[in-house]
Simulated assay, not measured.
Amino acid sequence: MVPPIISSKEIVKAFLTEVRSGKAPDQAKKYLAETVLAHQLNSEKKTTVTRTPENYAAHVRELLTQYGNYTFEITKLLADGDKVYARWKQSGHHLTNLDGYNATGKPLNEIASAVYRVKNGKIMEYWIQMDRFGFEQQLQQQQEN
């Protein structure tokens, strides 16, 4: 029997729901290619990080340390061929020093989006953007209160 073909959209949704959500970081190898190009799209300086399933899992574990058991909500998911756009909201708490701001334990939200390129059932590359201004504003307000 031939296994069912899973769409790029289904792969990205499962990856976000299982791995990026913090629920099962070590499942990254199930969704990511051995080498993934992660393009960080910042207005002032674009960078590309090479990710492996192992270091992506470590990245998610670091997020869990920084924000605790955060909630992760996919707010938009669109697909066009091998590319999938995802937008999400992550809600946790400020538990460690972030960008020079001392931990407050207060709620901290992140809004971000990424376009993932999927090939042969694995995420090969992605382009990610985050609302860094809004994030910075939250950190500043926490320090003032």
Results as ranks from 00 to 15, higher is better:
residue 1 M to F: 08
residue 2 V to Q: 09
residue 2 V to C: 03
residue 3 P to A: 11
residue 3 P to F: 08
residue 5 I to H: 07
residue 6 I to P: 01
residue 7 S to P: 01
residue 8 S to L: 05
residue 9 K to N: 00
residue 9 K to M: 05
residue 10 E to G: 05
residue 10 E to C: 04
residue 11 I to Q: 04
residue 11 I to H: 06
residue 12 V to I: 08
residue 13 K to A: 03
residue 13 K to R: 07
residue 13 K to D: 00
residue 13 K to V: 00
residue 15 F to D: 01
residue 17 T to C: 00
residue 19 V to I: 04
residue 20 R to G: 05
residue 21 S to N: 07
residue 21 S to C: 10
residue 24 A to N: 15
residue 24 A to K: 11
residue 25 P to N: 15
residue 26 D to A: 10
residue 26 D to L: 09
residue 27 Q to K: 13
residue 31 Y to E: 04
residue 33 A to L: 07
residue 33 A to W: 00
residue 34 E to V: 12
residue 35 T to M: 02
residue 35 T to S: 08
residue 35 T to V: 06
residue 37 L to E: 13
residue 37 L to M: 14
residue 38 A to V: 05
residue 38 A to T: 04
residue 38 A to I: 04
residue 39 H to G: 13
residue 39 H to L: 13
residue 39 H to E: 10
residue 40 Q to V: 14
residue 40 Q to G: 05
residue 41 L to A: 08
residue 42 N to T: 13
residue 42 N to S: 13
residue 43 S to R: 09
residue 44 E to Y: 15
residue 45 K to C: 12
residue 46 K to C: 09
residue 47 T to N: 15
residue 47 T to V: 14
residue 48 T to D: 11
residue 52 T to D: 04
residue 54 E to M: 14
residue 56 Y to K: 07
residue 56 Y to Q: 14
residue 57 A to G: 15
residue 57 A to R: 13
residue 59 H to F: 15
residue 59 H to T: 11
residue 60 V to F: 05
residue 60 V to I: 15
residue 61 R to K: 15
residue 61 R to Y: 10
residue 62 E to G: 15
residue 63 L to N: 15
residue 64 L to V: 10
residue 64 L to P: 13
residue 64 L to C: 11
residue 66 Q to H: 03
residue 66 Q to G: 01
residue 67 Y to G: 00
residue 67 Y to F: 14
residue 69 N to A: 06
residue 69 N to V: 00
residue 70 Y to C: 04
residue 70 Y to L: 10
residue 71 T to L: 13
residue 72 F to K: 04
residue 74 I to K: 06
residue 74 I to A: 06
residue 74 I to G: 04
residue 76 K to D: 14
residue 78 L to M: 09
residue 80 D to Q: 14
residue 83 K to V: 01
residue 83 K to C: 07
residue 85 Y to N: 02
residue 85 Y to G: 03
residue 87 R to S: 14
residue 87 R to C: 09
residue 87 R to P: 06
residue 90 Q to H: 07
residue 90 Q to G: 02
residue 91 S to A: 11
residue 91 S to E: 12
residue 91 S to M: 09
residue 94 H to L: 02
residue 96 T to Q: 04
residue 97 N to P: 00
residue 98 L to P: 01
residue 99 D to H: 09
residue 103 A to H: 02
residue 105 G to S: 02
residue 108 L to P: 02
residue 108 L to Q: 00
residue 109 N to H: 11
residue 109 N to W: 00
residue 109 N to F: 02
residue 110 E to D: 07
residue 112 A to F: 07
residue 112 A to Y: 08
residue 113 S to K: 02
residue 113 S to Q: 09
residue 113 S to E: 11
residue 114 A to R: 09
residue 116 Y to M: 08
residue 117 R to S: 10
residue 117 R to I: 04
residue 117 R to K: 14
residue 120 N to D: 15
residue 123 I to Q: 01
residue 125 E to S: 07
residue 127 W to Y: 15
residue 128 I to W: 06
residue 130 M to K: 13
residue 130 M to S: 12
residue 130 M to T: 10
residue 130 M to A: 12
residue 131 D to C: 07
residue 131 D to H: 06
residue 131 D to K: 11
residue 132 R to P: 03
residue 132 R to T: 12
residue 133 F to I: 14
residue 134 G to E: 12
residue 135 F to G: 02
residue 137 Q to F: 09
residue 137 Q to Y: 08
residue 137 Q to N: 13
residue 139 L to S: 12
residue 140 Q to Y: 10
residue 142 Q to W: 00
residue 142 Q to L: 06
residue 143 Q to L: 13
residue 144 E to Y: 10
